[in-house]
């Protein structure tokens, strides 16, 4: 599914995720850690998403799970957008 939000998530993953595969090749529920994203890369993704979407993840979202798949990232961003 190509939407502006998904495109931006993929672009952040591509820039910060240090994945050995292209993020476009992943299913949206695929485990990004299993795909090769390290813990350090995940915090780079987190800061990259905050920059790209101009949001700040609240404390409860600073978990491994939130950054574990494209779908979970989108769900967190949607929740923030709904609350805004």
């Amino acid at each position: 599914m190509t939407t502006p939000m998904n495109d931006l998530i993929l672009s952040v993953l591509s820039e910060h995720g240090r994945l050995p595969v292209s993020p476009e090749s992943l299913g949206e529920s695929d485990d990004l850690y299993a795909a090769g994203m390290t813990s350090h890369a995940s915090i780079s993704v987190m800061l990259g998403l905050e920059d790209a979407f101009d949001v700040e993840f609240p404390d409860r979202m600073l978990t491994r799970e939130v950054f574990s798949s494209i779908a979970s990232i989108r769900a967190a961003l949607n929740e923030l957008a709904a609350a805004a």
Binding site: S39, I43, M46, D59, L62, T63, R64, V66
Partner: peptide, 14 residues
């Protein structure tokens, strides 16, 4: 920092 919370919780979860 804030990003460190992700690492800390990840370390605990695993």
């Amino acid at each position: 920092g804030r990003s460190g919370k992700v690492l800390a919780r990840s370390q605990r979860a695993q």
